[in-house]
Simulated scan of single mutants.
Amino acid sequence: MIITDQMIDDIALGATVLGTGGGGDPYSGSLMAKVAIANAAKPVELIPLESVEDDWVVVPSSMIGAPTVAIEKLNSQNQMLVAFEAMEKEMGCQIAATFPIEVGGGNSLMPILVAASKGIPVIDCDAMGRAFPESQMVTFYLDDLPSAPNTLADEKGNVVTLQPIDGLWAEHFARAITEKMGGSAAICDYPMLGDKLKKSALGATLTKSIEIGKAIREANDNAQNATQAVLDIVGGVRIVSGKIIDIERNTGGGFVTGSLVIEPLKESLEPSLESVCVHFQNELLLAHKGRSAADINDENLLASTPDLISILDYETGHPITTDQLRYGQRVDLIAYPCDQKWRTPKGIEVVGPGYFGYQIRYIPIEEVAKQSAGKE
């Protein structure tokens, strides 16, 4: 499948939904991707995961850092290529194909920049099925695959190569280096052979992004409800339709963290809710009844990581990233199931609510929705 401008727009839209508020700026990412395919020596191909040869050396291409940084410090088009070629030098071979480490916003499009320059395909897969804030939060870490080597590059051309013992140490080192690089950096990690990728990665996530983006676009063209079009694909629930009445957001430590409060609209499907609080660390992590962290408990829980939580514009269904959330926005808050790999004991340990300091147990969104329905 040849990547076109329309596919890039649909990926940017759909992947930002799946990115749960994080994954980087989709607008600048889509612009760079379109320029890259226009200037490429040959068309850039999107290939299915199962078509990858077992002996191919493959490497993901992504950005690391706080999404708010990209508002003032735009990523360089060459930055991602510098990190990728540093990885080729470290590996001592040419890399056969690339792919996104996460399906989320701009990070879904970074591999296209590399593929266009190197004349290689983009693989239709990722290692999260969504976006998570830390480097070890990937299926490769769950499957005990090595993270090393890592290569990071800033927009000035500085390159740092790491040999961490695992993905957790990769996160510790890379996050600190990213801060020194201005809060945002290009990164390549988890190089592997094709047979390992096919066993560990989540397939068809870019085509799922295209499907979601197309559904939002067509719903708006036909004056239909775009949020419902998204829910029909992802199989989730609309928690509340409301207005953002309070938001707190901080950038530091390589993340954007904070919370927001949504007050239900009169026409909300959940009129019994007084208010909903949503917490985030780059990505949306937890939604509960109430207005502050003091209200977090199993009884008030509405959705939690690793299930996906997205905030969509109430009128258009377009996803809103955490750095773009504003007071007064009318939004739909939705939640839907994560991949089953994240519901394993190790998955919950790595990305469950407890990891982020929330003193509650993980309850799958299907069970939360059933409990809520039973109380009505």
Rank of each mutant, 00 (worst) to 15 (best):
D313V: 11
V35M: 13
D144T: 12
A70T: 11
L113E: 07
D298I: 06
Q281E: 02
G182E: 08
Q228N: 04
T68C: 15
S147I: 01
E179P: 03
M80C: 07
M192E: 06
I3F: 08
G65F: 11
S268P: 01
L285R: 02
M137L: 04
G290I: 00
A15Q: 07
L81E: 05
G129V: 15
S292I: 01
S200D: 14
V69E: 10
R361L: 14
N39F: 07
E90L: 10
G24S: 07
M192N: 05
M110P: 02
P337Q: 15
H279Y: 03
H318F: 00
G258V: 14
K370C: 15
I348P: 15
D166E: 09
D54I: 03
A115Q: 00
G203N: 14
L333W: 07
C338H: 10
D166L: 06
K375I: 11
A38D: 06
L260W: 06
A131P: 05
T178C: 01
G236E: 07
K198I: 11
E179F: 06
L273H: 09
G65K: 13
E102Q: 10
Y358M: 15
L269T: 11
V256S: 06
V350Y: 13
K214V: 01
L202S: 14
G65L: 12
Q79R: 03
R238C: 07
R249G: 10
Y314M: 11
G235N: 13
D313T: 12
G254L: 06
E85K: 11
D339T: 11
T344M: 09
V114K: 11
D166K: 09
R217G: 05
V159Q: 02
C188Q: 13
G242S: 11
K42G: 04
Q136W: 03
P164N: 01
A127I: 06
G182C: 07
Q79W: 02
Y355C: 08
I239N: 09
F173A: 06
R343Y: 12
D143N: 14
Q340P: 03
E134V: 01
V59F: 10
K34R: 00
I187N: 05
A215Q: 04
K375D: 12
S372T: 03
A170S: 04
